[in-house]
Design a protein around this nucleic acid. Structure first.
Length: 414
RNA sequence: GGAGAGGUGGCUGAGUGGUCGAAAGCAACGGUUUGCUAAACCGUCGUAGGAGUAACAUCCUACCGGGGGUUCGAAUCCCCCCCUCUCCGCCA
């Protein structure tokens, strides 16, 4: 949600932003509606003030009672118009995308993202490299067939050494983030619609969520939803910021409309697992915190020995809530290209306004906090490990940093 | 699942129809006093929206879990819902 004052004072800015982001909300109509809302506010408040004045006389003056009764009819009519107008304005406001950083490149899709740097050394193999699905099947550590049997296509099992490797990676990742100042949480994996709305997943990604029938709850699409929602309706002490939170949870997405797209393997699935980075910070500090999360992502991939590149995500590939976004794409030798493994967004005050998360400091400073939402690690990183660490004999080496947690140095065919 | 209690400002906690945005205490902040600390004393001390100002000031409106109702007037009365706590039962 953007600041409605900007809409009043500088509608052109909002209009340009909406146009660039392909938002179809009619800004002129919204501005007019908002003006109507404001004038109704004034009318209603004047009528209420009059009513309150008259009410004070009612004890001694019966005529005042009649006057108030008459006034109440007008008031009720105005109030209902006010409520209706307010609801319309708010509904339209919730569909407005966030503003954009000047650094966001133009473009329509992920092909237009701007590459910032390539890091690491791509492995070269003296044999045809397999992709993670082929490796997972040969090693008996990824089981999509049985995932489909017990649940549905798009679900899978990590099995045996694969499950051990995956758990090792997530546990190691948690340790790294904790060392870097993050507070670890175990989060609810269901959230109510208000929480999804506040984080911007509703209404923008409504078709991506799995609702629970008969409840005002849905499976979380990411722990961002619950970790950011954690501070809803709170005022944080400015001195306590930035607050860095992390959680490791399953994430559920319907992936409606994406069938057939990158569908081989377990790259695009209905349930994956994610170690998340969330930062609540002062507005001035959000660019720095955004970079800090990126540095953490890069550190984790470097420690795991994975080649990757960082891209500055273009307008067309960024969700409506985002102000600026970096993706990291790891190198997948079996696939033969870079593929997205992490995503890091500065949401500025888009979420904090919707969730009413404010800050206040001892010097009188106050406002809405900024939020940063970034991936730490996901199953996709394990896939990248499999593809990059495969050996001529069909085995897969375990990255050194994970060996203390797996207890073994390589995965060999069963 | 059964029974009961309760939701008031950062916290504790008064308040059962008007003068209540709300006593008091604690915490916090500013100041006085003090060799320093502590204590004591004085003062300030909710949020949001609107009007207003160069900026303050000031004024108006709303908010005592949420929604609805009664009334000229609701923290206070009535209805529905939500949440929390306690005890019992069941249980990973």
């Amino acid at each position: 949600m953007i600041d409605p004052k900007i809409l009043r004072e500088n509608p052109e800015l909002v209009k340009q932003n909406a146009a660039r982001r392909g938002c179809t909300v009619d800004i002129d109509a919204l501005v007019a509606l908002d003006q109507e809302y404001l004038s109704l506010v004034r009318e209603v408040e004047d009528l209420r003030a009059e009513r309150n004045r008259l009410s004070k006389d009612c004890k001694s003056d019966p005529a005042a009672r009649e006057a108030v009764k008459e006034l109440k009819v007008t008031l009720a009519e105005k109030e209902s118009r006010l409520d209706a107008t307010k609801a319309q304005v708010e509904e339209k406001l919730t569909w407005l995308p966030n503003f954009l950083s000047p650094e966001v490149p133009d473009g329509a899709s992920d092909r237009d993202n701007a590459e910032l740097r390539q890091m690491g050394v791509k492995p070269s193999f003296a044999f045809p490299a397999l992709d993670h699905q082929a490796l997972g099947e040969k090693l008996g550590i990824i089981d999509t067939a049985r995932g489909a049997k017990v649940a549905q296509s798009g679900f899978y099992f990590w099995a045996g050494a694969g499950a051990q490797l995956t758990q090792a990676m997530f546990f190691w990742g948690q340790q790294q983030l904790i060392k870097r100042g993050f507070k670890l949480f175990m989060s609810p994996c269901l959230a109510k619609s208000q929480t999804l709305f506040g984080t911007g997943y509703l209404p923008f990604f409504a078709d991506q969520t799995y609702p629970i029938s008969g409840e005002d709850l849905a499976l979380i699409g990411t722990s961002e939803q619950t970790l950011v929602g954690y501070h809803a309706d709170e005022t944080l002490d400015g001195a306590s910021l930035p607050r860095c939170y992390t959680a490791y949870t399953p994430c559920f997405r319907t992936e409606a409309g994406s069938y057939g797209k990158e569908s081989r393997g377990i790259f695009r699935v209905h349930q994956f697992h994610k170690l998340e980075q969330i930062i609540f910070c002062l507005p001035d500090d959000s660019p720095r915190c955004h970079e800090l999360c990126l540095a953490n992502e890069e550190y984790l991939l470097q420690q795991l020995g994975l080649p990757y590149r960082v891209v500055n995500v273009c307008v067309g590939d960024m969700g409506a809530p985002g102000y600026k976004k970096y993706d990291i794409e790891a190198w997948y030798p079996g696939f033969g290209g870079y593929r997205e493994v992490t995503s890091n967004t500065n949401l500025t005050e888009f979420q904090s306004r919707r969730l009413n998360i404010r800050y206040k400091d001892s010097k009188g400073g106050k406002g809405f906090v900024h939020t940063i939402s970034a991936t730490g690690l996901t199953d996709r990183v394990v896939c990248a490990i499999l593809e990059n660490y495969q050996q001529a004999d069909g085995s897969v080496r375990v990255p050194e940093v994970l060996q203390p947690f797996t207890g073994f140095a390589s995965i060999t065919p069963a």
